[in-house]
Nucleic acid binder design. Sequence first.
DNA 1: TAAATCATTTTTGGATACAAAAATAAGACT
DNA 2: AGTCTTATTTTTGTATCCAAAAATGATTTA
Lengths: 211, 211
Amino acid sequence: MSPTPDHVAEIVNQLRSEILTGVLKPDLPLKQESIAARFQVSRMPVREALRQLEMMGFVTVNQNRRTHVAPTSQADFLEIYDMRIAAEVLAIRSAMPHLTNAQIDKASGFHAKILAGQTEDFGSLNTALHMALYEPSARPRLLGHIQNLGEAADRYTFMCSVDQAFRDKSNAEHAALIDACYARDEDAAAQCLETHIRDARDKFSPEFKEA
Amino acid sequence: MSPTPDHVAEIVNQLRSEILTGVLKPDLPLKQESIAARFQVSRMPVREALRQLEMMGFVTVNQNRRTHVAPTSQADFLEIYDMRIAAEVLAIRSAMPHLTNAQIDKASGFHAKILAGQTEDFGSLNTALHMALYEPSARPRLLGHIQNLGEAADRYTFMCSVDQAFRDKSNAEHAALIDACYARDEDAAAQCLETHIRDARDKFSPEFKEA
DNA sequence: TAAATCATTTTTGGATACAAAAATAAGACT
DNA sequence: AGTCTTATTTTTGTATCCAAAAATGATTTA
């Protein structure tokens, strides 16, 4: 409509959401023209959106410049989760010296919300809890990287059903992590976090066995 | 020029090189029009190039859509190097089970070249050595991330002078790393790598103390 | 019938053109 | 003189248009 209102971000968000919820399936070709028609804009902002999605890993551009929804694989899932362990352990270690009780309280608040709301969106509360603990590190590069990995992981975790047993274990791990933070025990927190993410990885990994 | 030849990559490479060598200094405003004139193209490919450079962290786009060369700081330098430790340690651990002697020989070849050529481009040989050891991990996401961090680090290391003492230490650490790989000792290799990168970090870090 | 060649259509990267923010410069007012 | 307002310029985002790859389909040939 109006000539200068950054349609790019909107298109990126919409397409990303459709990719990670599986509406747009892996290997589906994405044609600029049809996307432009769908969003009532020209191909220009669509092109930029596709480029951004490419850098984020949600789409791949083959050698002939055709854009497809990026494929998924168990190997990719494992890769993402191993990178998450490395990045998030670094984040909690970097944040620890700067953590105030107020900030831990905030994370603890998310933890309580998870315990209370049984069937609420576990995902966003979970990431909010984690990010609350990482943000005091004041490391924008690292935080951005963790955010990217989280979004990449969402593509896989979206379709996963979480049983109560896993929920209980996750809650216990969160509690232990928060306790370690209150105690300012860096090594304990790092250990908690590592096993926490590793447990999620090992839990969901089998669901993505290749055909 | 010709109508469909991907000028974007060329512009990205040139600008990135000028940013990391300091030709384009931090906070310098980058105007699409003048860049387009410099490269004899329209603003279209320039826009895409700037967006890519933004995702790579070489430029920042402020709220008013003005693009500047990204600032540098000691904190950013430390952040990059801590992320390198986390990512590269993961890479060597992931690669270890798949490493063949032939692949280690390749890394060893780069090591020999570094020892031989005294004043050659230490930088590219160094990254080649490291990447040779990581590539067998077959983890494209992780390898891309490491590549990005390396390029981000180049912005800082470019201006650093490496004395012979540091060179000797680095060479010894490379040798120890390669030995650990031949021995398929994952923990030892991870330890070597961590101290190797940490030494570089601690060596260069003081050069970027804020004013 | 299967493969190869050629014409047509589709899709993409780039150039040009135009409207709206943002920045800059100029003038009015206290 | 210093500050606020307003007009001009600059810079950016998007739409439209064009040419070249790539893909598709039809036709020919063995």
